[in-house]
Simulated assay, not measured.
Amino acid sequence: MATFVTFQAHPDDESITVGGVMRKAADEGHRVVLVVATGGELGEIPEGLLAEGETLVQRRAAETRAAADILGVKRLEFLGYHDSGMMGWEQNSAPGAFWNASIEEAAQKLAAILVEEQADVITFDDDNGGYGHPDHIQVHRVGRRAAEIAGTPRVYQHTSNRDEAYERWRRYAEETGAEIPDFEGAEFGKPAAELTARVDVSAYTDAKREAMRAHVSQIPEESWFLSMPEKHFAAAFGTEWFIREGHGPGITETDLLAGLD
């Protein structure tokens, strides 16, 4: 069996981006490892959710552990950096912010985990961080360098199919009347022509939804993620998309762990 590592920016990113592949890998007997760069200190939180004396970092760590259990994670690690906030926020340059961290230093920390785990596969964000978030962009830079240091054989950028997503969200809004984020002008994900792997995780959308639900501080039940009808949730989250490092464009893979039994 193989070891699959996914490197994420904040608590909850794992459930949204690669939750299906994580649960699929675990069910197939592979070892799943989750590494999170930051504590998610700058996430929004509903009033009154935290217990007396509880910090948001503590709550988000507990939520991540709960989600990790749902997704079959055998090892969860936090690298200990601070949430940098959105691009242009003053927190980008704060001491300890991930965006402000040494790429080499952070990569060495991640590489140590990859070497210890003898990782066969790693995933991290695409070069635009999915949607331009500084911590996600830094995850790409650090993840790529760590894979080089550790010599991890299979390296994937987790991303989304921009072309397919625009149409899907428009159709969802038209069919249900739901309000969705304004995607006009947004550059999230990558064009279909740049993708190399498409993984069908439709059998694991229930697990993805439960893992998202575990992150109650960030994804409340009334959020547009969890309030979606089951049919639309399955359509939105039943496929996960990747770009394999060193492989040309065109969908050539449907299983990141193929041949690693």
Score class of each variant (00 low, 15 high):
Ala106Leu: 10
Ala106Ser: 15
Glu116Pro: 11
Trp99Met: 00
Gln91Ser: 15
Gln91His: 10
Glu117Tyr: 00
Gly85Asn: 13
Leu114His: 14
Lys109Glu: 15
Ala106Cys: 15
Glu90Pro: 02
Gly85Lys: 09
Gln118Gly: 05
Gly88Thr: 05
Phe98Cys: 11
Gln108Val: 13
Glu117Arg: 02
Gly88Ser: 10
Ser102Trp: 10
Glu117Ser: 06
Trp89Met: 14
Gln91Lys: 10
Glu90Asp: 13
Ala111Glu: 01
Ala101Gln: 05
Trp89Thr: 13
Leu110Asn: 00
Val115Tyr: 02
Trp89Arg: 14
Ala94Pro: 04
Lys109Cys: 07
Met86Glu: 13
Glu104Met: 12
Ser93Trp: 01
Phe98Asn: 05
Ser84Tyr: 02
Glu117Gln: 13
Lys109Val: 02
Asp120Met: 00
Lys109Arg: 06
His82Thr: 06
Asn92Thr: 01
Tyr81Val: 00
Ser84Gly: 06
Gln118His: 08
Gln108Asp: 08
Ala106Val: 06
Met86Lys: 12
Ala101His: 04
Ala106Glu: 05
Trp99Val: 11
Ala101Tyr: 09
Trp89Lys: 15
Ile103His: 02
Asp83Gly: 13
Ala111Phe: 03
Met86Thr: 14
Gln91Tyr: 10
Gly85Met: 11
Glu104Phe: 14
Asn100Phe: 06
Ala97Pro: 07
Asn100Lys: 03
Trp89Ser: 10
Glu105Tyr: 08
Gly96Leu: 06
Glu105Thr: 11
Glu116Lys: 03
Asp120Ala: 03
Glu116Phe: 00
Ala94Gly: 07
Gln108Leu: 09
Ala107Leu: 12
Met87Ala: 15
Ala107Thr: 09
Phe98Thr: 02
Asp83Leu: 15
Gly85Thr: 12
Ser102Lys: 13
Gln108Trp: 03
Val115Ala: 11
Gly88Tyr: 13
Ala111Asn: 08
Gly96Val: 03
Glu117Lys: 06
Glu116Gln: 12
Glu90Thr: 09
Ala94Asn: 13
Gln118Ile: 08
Ile103Asp: 15
Phe98Pro: 12
Phe98Gln: 01
Ala97Met: 12
Gln91Leu: 08
Asp120His: 12
Asn100Gly: 06
His82Phe: 14
Ala112Pro: 08
Pro95Met: 03
Gln118Trp: 01
Asp83Asn: 13
Gln91Asn: 05
Val115Gln: 12
Met87Tyr: 12
Ile113Leu: 05
Ile103Glu: 08
Asp120Glu: 01
Gln118Pro: 05
Trp89Val: 05
Trp89Cys: 04
Ile103Asn: 03
Ile103Val: 15
Ala101Phe: 12
Ala101Pro: 10
His82Gly: 14
Pro95Val: 01
Ile113Glu: 01
Ile103Lys: 07
Gln91Met: 09
Trp89Asp: 04
Asp120Lys: 01
Ala107Met: 12
Gly96Asn: 03
Glu104Cys: 06
Glu90Asn: 11
Ala111Leu: 08
Gly85Gln: 11
Ala111Arg: 01
Ile103Ser: 05
Gln118Leu: 01
Asp83Arg: 08
Glu104Ala: 07
His82Trp: 07
Lys109Ser: 10
Asn92Trp: 04
Leu110Lys: 09
Asn92Asp: 13
Leu110Gln: 04
Ala97Asn: 07
Gln91Pro: 09
Glu104His: 11
